[in-house]
Design a protein around this nucleic acid. Structure first.
Length: 194
DNA sequence: CCCCAGATTGTCT
DNA sequence: GACAATCTGGGGA
Protein backbone atom coordinates (compact mmCIF):
# COMPACT_ATOMS: atom_id res chain seq x y z
CA UNK A 1 0.00 0.00 0.00
CA UNK A 2 1.27 3.46 -0.85
CA UNK A 3 1.63 6.22 1.73
CA UNK A 4 -1.08 8.85 2.16
CA UNK A 5 -0.17 12.28 0.80
CA UNK A 6 0.32 14.76 3.67
CA UNK A 7 -1.48 18.05 4.22
CA UNK A 8 1.51 20.03 2.97
CA UNK A 9 1.13 18.45 -0.44
CA UNK A 10 -2.08 20.41 -0.98
CA UNK A 11 -0.94 23.66 0.61
CA UNK A 12 0.66 24.87 -2.61
CA UNK A 13 -0.35 26.68 -5.76
CA UNK A 14 -3.56 25.25 -7.25
CA UNK A 15 -2.00 24.60 -10.67
CA UNK A 16 0.99 22.83 -9.11
CA UNK A 17 -1.34 20.59 -7.10
CA UNK A 18 -3.52 19.93 -10.17
CA UNK A 19 -0.53 18.67 -12.13
CA UNK A 20 0.96 16.86 -9.13
CA UNK A 21 -2.17 14.80 -8.48
CA UNK A 22 -1.87 13.15 -11.92
CA UNK A 23 -0.61 9.61 -11.37
CA UNK A 24 -1.67 9.54 -7.71
CA UNK A 25 -4.28 7.11 -6.34
CA UNK A 26 -7.77 8.10 -5.25
CA UNK A 27 -8.97 5.53 -2.72
CA UNK A 28 -12.62 5.17 -1.70
CA UNK A 29 -13.21 2.83 1.25
CA UNK A 30 -16.66 1.21 1.45
CA UNK A 31 -17.27 -1.34 4.23
CA UNK A 32 -13.56 -2.05 4.43
CA UNK A 33 -13.30 -2.62 0.69
CA UNK A 34 -11.05 -0.43 -1.42
CA UNK A 35 -12.11 1.13 -4.71
CA UNK A 36 -8.99 2.60 -6.25
CA UNK A 37 -8.41 4.71 -9.35
CA UNK A 38 -5.31 6.42 -10.68
CA UNK A 39 -5.92 10.10 -11.32
CA UNK A 40 -5.38 10.75 -15.04
CA UNK A 41 -7.19 14.08 -15.60
CA UNK A 42 -7.72 17.20 -13.46
CA UNK A 43 -8.78 20.82 -13.81
CA UNK A 44 -7.64 23.78 -11.73
CA UNK A 45 -10.17 26.28 -10.37
CA UNK A 46 -8.20 29.26 -9.16
CA UNK A 47 -8.66 30.94 -5.75
CA UNK A 48 -9.05 34.46 -7.16
CA UNK A 49 -10.26 36.14 -10.35
CA UNK A 50 -11.58 32.93 -11.89
CA UNK A 51 -15.18 33.54 -13.03
CA UNK A 52 -15.70 29.83 -13.68
CA UNK A 53 -14.87 28.84 -10.10
CA UNK A 54 -17.55 28.30 -7.47
CA UNK A 55 -15.58 30.52 -5.11
CA UNK A 56 -15.92 33.54 -7.42
CA UNK A 57 -19.09 34.84 -5.75
CA UNK A 58 -17.50 34.59 -2.30
CA UNK A 59 -17.99 32.19 0.57
CA UNK A 60 -21.41 30.49 0.72
CA UNK A 61 -22.75 27.42 2.48
CA UNK A 62 -22.15 25.36 -0.63
CA UNK A 63 -18.52 26.29 -1.25
CA UNK A 64 -17.42 26.92 2.36
CA UNK A 65 -15.01 24.00 2.41
CA UNK A 66 -12.98 25.64 -0.37
CA UNK A 67 -12.24 28.48 2.00
CA UNK A 68 -10.79 26.07 4.55
CA UNK A 69 -7.48 24.24 4.66
CA UNK A 70 -6.17 22.22 1.70
CA UNK A 71 -6.58 18.45 1.53
CA UNK A 72 -10.35 18.18 1.95
CA UNK A 73 -13.00 17.07 -0.53
CA UNK A 74 -15.43 19.49 -2.13
CA UNK A 75 -18.43 17.58 -3.47
CA UNK A 76 -21.31 19.28 -5.26
CA UNK A 77 -24.15 18.15 -7.48
CA UNK A 78 -25.75 19.58 -10.57
CA UNK A 79 -27.99 18.10 -13.27
CA UNK A 80 -28.58 15.19 -10.88
CA UNK A 81 -24.87 14.33 -11.07
CA UNK A 82 -22.06 14.71 -8.52
CA UNK A 83 -18.58 16.16 -9.04
CA UNK A 84 -15.64 16.05 -6.67
CA UNK A 85 -12.74 18.45 -6.12
CA UNK A 86 -9.86 18.35 -3.73
CA UNK A 87 -9.25 21.68 -2.04
CA UNK A 88 -5.78 23.19 -2.52
CA UNK A 89 -3.83 26.00 -0.85
CA UNK A 90 -4.85 27.22 2.59
CA UNK A 91 -7.45 29.08 4.67
CA UNK A 92 -9.11 31.92 2.75
CA UNK A 93 -7.27 30.93 -0.44
CA UNK A 94 -10.06 28.88 -2.04
CA UNK A 95 -8.34 27.09 -4.94
CA UNK A 96 -9.51 23.59 -5.84
CA UNK A 97 -8.73 20.72 -8.18
CA UNK A 98 -11.57 19.02 -10.04
CA UNK A 99 -10.96 15.29 -10.48
CA UNK A 100 -12.16 14.66 -14.04
CA UNK A 101 -11.06 11.10 -14.76
CA UNK A 102 -9.54 7.98 -13.19
CA UNK A 103 -7.97 4.78 -14.47
CA UNK A 104 -9.69 1.92 -12.56
CA UNK A 105 -7.17 -0.08 -10.51
CA UNK A 106 -8.94 -1.95 -7.69
CA UNK A 107 -12.56 -2.86 -7.00
CA UNK A 108 -13.49 -2.78 -10.67
CA UNK A 109 -16.33 -5.29 -10.19
CA UNK A 110 -18.11 -2.98 -7.75
CA UNK A 111 -17.51 0.03 -10.00
CA UNK A 112 -19.20 -1.91 -12.82
CA UNK A 113 -22.21 -2.59 -10.58
CA UNK A 114 -22.45 1.05 -9.57
CA UNK A 115 -22.26 2.21 -13.18
CA UNK A 116 -24.45 -0.55 -14.64
CA UNK A 117 -21.91 -1.30 -17.36
CA UNK A 118 -19.09 -3.76 -17.98
CA UNK A 119 -17.18 -1.40 -20.24
CA UNK A 120 -14.06 -0.60 -18.21
CA UNK A 121 -13.29 2.47 -20.30
CA UNK A 122 -16.70 3.92 -19.46
CA UNK A 123 -16.47 3.54 -15.67
CA UNK A 124 -14.57 6.62 -14.52
CA UNK A 125 -13.78 8.75 -17.60
CA UNK A 126 -15.72 11.82 -16.48
CA UNK A 127 -16.33 13.76 -13.24
CA UNK A 128 -19.92 12.57 -12.82
CA UNK A 129 -19.09 9.03 -13.85
CA UNK A 130 -16.28 8.55 -11.34
CA UNK A 131 -18.47 9.82 -8.51
CA UNK A 132 -21.12 7.26 -9.44
CA UNK A 133 -18.53 4.47 -9.73
CA UNK A 134 -16.99 5.28 -6.32
CA UNK A 135 -20.32 6.10 -4.63
CA UNK A 136 -19.33 9.66 -3.87
CA UNK A 137 -22.29 11.79 -2.76
CA UNK A 138 -22.50 15.14 -1.06
CA UNK A 139 -22.45 13.49 2.38
CA UNK A 140 -18.77 13.11 1.56
CA UNK A 141 -18.26 16.86 1.22
CA UNK A 142 -15.47 18.12 3.50
CA UNK A 143 -13.77 14.74 4.05
CA UNK A 144 -10.08 14.88 5.02
CA UNK A 145 -8.19 12.99 2.30
CA UNK A 146 -4.97 13.05 4.37
CA UNK A 147 -6.52 10.94 7.17
CA UNK A 148 -6.07 7.18 6.68
CA UNK A 149 -9.37 6.61 8.51
CA UNK A 150 -11.38 8.65 5.99
CA UNK A 151 -13.73 7.10 3.47
CA UNK A 152 -11.82 8.95 0.73
CA UNK A 153 -8.05 9.29 0.76
CA UNK A 154 -5.30 10.04 -1.75
CA UNK A 155 -2.22 7.82 -1.80
CA UNK A 156 1.13 8.56 -3.37
CA UNK A 157 1.77 7.11 -6.81
CA UNK A 158 3.67 7.94 -9.92
CA UNK A 159 5.33 11.29 -10.55
CA UNK A 160 4.18 12.50 -13.97
CA UNK A 161 6.91 14.68 -15.45
CA UNK A 162 6.01 17.85 -17.33
CA UNK A 163 6.67 16.23 -20.73
CA UNK A 164 3.93 13.65 -20.14
CA UNK A 165 1.28 16.21 -19.16
CA UNK A 166 -1.17 17.44 -21.79
CA UNK A 167 -2.45 20.94 -21.00
CA UNK A 168 -5.74 22.06 -22.57
CA UNK A 169 -8.82 24.22 -22.03
CA UNK A 170 -11.30 23.41 -19.30
CA UNK A 171 -14.45 21.53 -20.29
CA UNK A 172 -18.13 22.26 -19.80
CA UNK A 173 -17.95 25.81 -18.46
CA UNK A 174 -19.28 29.02 -19.96
CA UNK A 175 -16.94 31.59 -18.39
CA UNK A 176 -13.14 31.85 -18.72
CA UNK A 177 -13.39 28.88 -21.04
CA UNK A 178 -10.11 29.55 -22.84
CA UNK A 179 -7.78 29.28 -19.87
CA UNK A 180 -5.31 26.37 -20.15
CA UNK A 181 -6.16 24.82 -16.78
CA UNK A 182 -7.03 21.24 -17.72
CA UNK A 183 -4.32 18.66 -17.25
CA UNK A 184 -4.17 15.01 -18.31
CA UNK A 185 -1.68 12.20 -18.80
CA UNK A 186 -0.78 12.13 -22.49
CA UNK A 187 -2.19 9.15 -24.32
CA UNK A 188 -4.08 7.65 -21.37
CA UNK A 189 -7.27 6.02 -22.69
CA UNK A 190 -9.25 6.78 -19.54
CA UNK A 191 -9.12 10.55 -20.02
CA UNK A 192 -12.61 11.98 -20.58
CA UNK A 193 -13.42 12.60 -24.19
CA UNK A 194 -15.17 15.94 -24.54
C1' DC B 1 -41.05 32.04 -2.17
C1' DC B 2 -39.97 31.93 -7.01
C1' DC B 3 -36.67 31.95 -10.62
C1' DC B 4 -32.59 30.66 -12.79
C1' DA B 5 -28.03 29.06 -14.12
C1' DG B 6 -24.98 25.38 -13.82
C1' DA B 7 -17.38 22.31 -13.28
C1' DT B 8 -22.85 16.54 -16.85
C1' DT B 9 -24.45 12.47 -19.08
C1' DG B 10 -26.95 9.51 -22.18
C1' DT B 11 -29.69 9.18 -26.13
C1' DC B 12 -31.35 10.20 -30.49
C1' DT B 13 -30.65 12.19 -35.24
C1' DG C 1 -23.71 17.32 -32.62
C1' DA C 2 -27.86 18.73 -30.40
C1' DC C 3 -30.90 18.39 -26.58
C1' DA C 4 -33.58 16.98 -22.74
C1' DA C 5 -33.63 15.28 -18.06
C1' DT C 6 -34.73 17.39 -13.72
C1' DC C 7 -31.75 18.80 -8.85
C1' DT C 8 -29.50 22.28 -5.78
C1' DG C 9 -28.00 26.57 -3.95
C1' DG C 10 -27.99 31.45 -4.35
C1' DG C 11 -30.12 35.83 -5.02
C1' DG C 12 -33.80 38.98 -5.41
C1' DA C 13 -38.74 40.32 -4.29
Amino acid sequence: MNSVLPREYYQRDTVIVSKGLLGKFLVRVIDGKRLVGKIVETEAYLPFDDPAAHNYIGKTTRNAVQFGEGGFTYVHSMHQVHCMDIVAETVDVPGSVLIRALEPIEGIELMMENRHTKNVQNLTNGPGKLCQALQITRELNGVDVTDEESMIIVEDGELIVEGRILTSKRVGISKAKDLPLRFSIKGNVFVSKS
